[in-house]
Design a protein around this nucleic acid. Structure first.
Lengths: 220, 220
DNA sequence: CGACACCTTGAAGAGGTTCAAGAAATGTGG
DNA sequence: CCACATTTCTTGAACCTCTTCAAGGTGTCG
């Protein structure tokens, strides 16, 4: 992760990732109200985070995959304010936050890395706000697919094929749409020859078309 | 801000807030693309932050008032990715981020304070995602008013009266609504006797009604 | 005082939701 | 390994909320 570290520093940071934990599909990594103690680095598997209101409404706030960090919401109040659920069997590193803070005080590069991770999450959420606040259904789903495939490709997966680990309802919750709208929009993209949909397997035939949908607010 | 500090630590943290800057209404504090160097603590005044896409769409991502910190978006890439504009004449403290990181390595309480500020922003944005993703116009505006008046009250202002520093259009952008919808919803609240609207002066007559609107998704 | 920005309100229209039914996939237990 | 239950997905039709377009009103600042 951070670069330009001495071997000594590297050894100390290695300590952070010694605790491993396996999470089965459907299990919570943490839940709203749980005491906060650690951040979690995802080694394998796929998670979603969501917030829930008293009146039962809930909103998916993100999907996390290998190499990403989750749990940042707990720092401010020492309690988690959202749920994290594994969408497939997963393995994570438990990184006790007091240890992160301790090492951050010693290792400048780690300190900056932590700051960047948090800033990156803030910037990501700005993007989601833009999506939720000003895009139409097709634009939202196109942006979602492009984002997913980009992150998967950065991890060595195909640039054109992906397997959705979440339901239409979870996609809809994330995008501020109903599951029926997500389904219909997939069908429309398929009819237009932009993608092939086979349940949760998506093949992207025309990524440029998706880009065009996102970056041209209906003035096609 | 952070508690339980030695006088020595306090002196050092005081160094962080020595640089002051005045920003006139309508001026940028920073803009998308500006090199990132500092966080800004607002002493007086009122700001909005917004992101803009290539195709000209933009989205207000937040409103900041006295005592709040802005600029966190710049940490991840060393460049700001959003704009910050003063909505009224303001005074801010410029806090060079390298100095913050330096002092954070020395002063544990400051380090944790910085982490909490970033986590708090992440959690706030979760709330906005919930609002944008799952609330209807009336619920959004009610939540917005309650949030604003709560923050103002924490600063010694009235619990029932507030002056909006932003236009209907800016409120709409933040809430994912058109300015006409914002205006109409204000009028409806006024007709229902929940608030009194006189341009940007809002008087809240029935805060419980607003709470009810937020926490009961149409099953009134 | 006049120009400009901001706000309100109406009427028509579009996009997404809701309700409903059926099909396809997945998981479970015998 | 198959039958059945359950979950997930698709599609249609009616409806509703919010948007769009338009016009007029109000406030503000040079």
């Amino acid at each position: 992760m951070p670069m330009g570290l001495s071997n000594d520093d590297l050894d100390r940071i290695d300590e952070l990732v010694t605790i491993r934990r396996r999470i089965k599909r459907g299990e919570f990594l943490y839940q709203n109200g749980d005491p906060f103690s650690s951040l979690y680095a995802i080694r394998t598997g796929f998670f979603k985070t969501s917030v829930t209101t008293e009146d039962g409404r809930d909103q998916v706030t993100g999907f996390q995959m290998a190499g990403e960090i989750t749990g940042l919401d707990g720092i401010v109040s020492d309690f988690h304010s959202c749920d994290s659920v594994a969408l497939e069997d997963a393995e994570i590193c438990v990184m006790p936050f007091d240890k992160i803070e301790y090492l951050s005080r010693e290792v400048k590069a780690l300190q900056h890395h932590v700051h960047r991770i948090m800033s990156k999450e803030i910037v990501r959420e700005h993007g989601v706000m833009l999506l939720l606040g000003s895009m139409r259904a097709e634009e939202r789903l196109a942006a979602f697919l492009l984002n997913l495939v980009k992150r998967l490709h950065a991890r060595g997966f195909s640039r054109s094929e992906l397997v959705l680990r979440m339901t239409r309802e979870e996609i809809g919750s994330y995008l501020g749409l109903k599951l029926e709208t997500v389904s219909r929009t997939f069908s429309k993209f398929a009819d237009d020859g932009i993608i092939v949909v086979k349940q949760r397997n998506i093949q992207i035939l025309d990524p440029d078309a998706l880009n065009l949908i996102v970056n041209s607010q209906s003035c096609a």
